[in-house]
Amino acid sequence: MIRLNYRDSKPIYEQIEEAFKKLIISGALKKDERLPSVRALATQLSINPNTIQRAYNELENEGYLYSLKGKGNFVSGLKDNSSEKIEILIGEIAERMKEAEFLGMSFDELVLRVKEAMG
């Protein structure tokens, strides 16, 4: 379910964080579904439990998860934090657009092409 890319320059906790975000946003993990325990994931991925805990903490801070003491981490509903999430997405899209501009595309052309691509 979670695959780490060792050639990626991103730190591992960020990769885990992003993998779970994708699963949550895509609906592969449903609201109130339990995430694998820190222990299980540390064992499965052979990485330090603190790294997993950090990823879970960040996800919780960003509102993707909630944790119940002694029970584990669960997926939160998406609605209450959608505005924040949109901010993040806009940041990411802007980053990509800059790249495309760098490659010589004009802004208008880009918007047009993206519209097409979105169908």
């Binding site: 222990r39 540390a42 064992t43 991925l45 052979s46 439990p49």
Partner: peptide, 14 residues
């Protein structure tokens, strides 16, 4: 290697 580290990490967390 992966298996051994996995077992170690399990011990560390549990």
């Amino acid at each position: 290697r992966r298996r051994v580290w996995g077992l170690m990490m399990e011990d560390v967390s549990s």
